[in-house]
């Protein structure tokens, strides 16, 4: 089970609303490489992991990603507060506003709805951990792109923190993948699926 902690992992206090930037950042909530897909990817993959270490790692990173989803949502909420319909239109937010007003909804920057098709749970730890490493790099690139679009230090600080977390998670998943490969005891660790054939 999970219990809530009534705080963010990293502080978010944005003074100046900017709906145009919010519409880009929402991709890290509900986009193809966003925090929701990250959390669901790891929390669903963990059941097929063959080692105690990897069950723990996927549980704990999947949990941290839920906290990152909350940081992104807080950023979007604060960037879009107290704006008039005219201001929202001038900042290119009118299409999101029509569908969701000021609510938080997981979509990509392009407007595409969140879908479970953004991630895989293949039931093979070599395959799944390889996806996880790629997912962390894709999320890191997305943060790089957002950091180029943003010039508000209140927004840049949490984006930079989240970008660094992708790099740490990539490192941990690399260790996890290596441990699974070494546990297979031979050079051809593709010969079997340790989650299914053993």
């Amino acid at each position: 089970m999970w219990r809530y902690e009534k705080r963010l992992q990293f502080p978010v206090r944005i003074v100046t609303p900017n709906a145009r930037l919010a519409k880009a950042i929402v991709s890290q909530l509900g986009g193809p490489d966003g925090e929701l897909s990250a959390s669901l990817r790891y929390l669903n993959q963990r059941y097929a992991m063959p080692t105690r270490e990897n069950m723990a790692l996927l549980t704990d990173i999947g949990t941290e990603e839920l906290g990152h989803m909350e940081i992104i949502s807080a950023i979007i909420r604060q960037l879009t507060r107290n704006l008039t319909a005219d201001q929202l239109r001038a900042q290119g937010f009118d299409d999101y506003y029509v569908d969701h007003t000021g609510g938080i909804w997981p979509q990509a920057a392009s407007g595409a709805a969140f879908t479970a098709a953004y991630f895989q749970s293949k039931g093979d730890p070599i395959t799944d951990l390889s996806e996880d490493m790629a997912a962390e790099q894709k999320a890191r690139t997305t943060y790089d792109n957002l950091i180029r679009l943003a010039d508000d230090p209140d927004v840049l600080a949490p984006l930079r923190f989240l970008r660094e977390r992708e790099i740490v998670h990539y490192q941990r998943f690399g260790e996890a993948l290596r441990a699974v490969a070494e546990s297979m005891g031979g050079p051809n660790y593709y010969a079997i699926n340790p989650a299914f054939d053993l």
Binding site: E5, R7, L8, F10, E53, D60, E64, V168, E175, A176
Partner: peptide, 18 residues
């Protein structure tokens, strides 16, 4: 937040280096 982050980060390291 600072103390909580130290805990989060150490937890992930210990997951792969128990």
């Amino acid at each position: 937040m600072i103390e909580g982050f130290a805990l989060d980060e150490a937890r992930l390291f210990l997951d792969t280096h128990p």
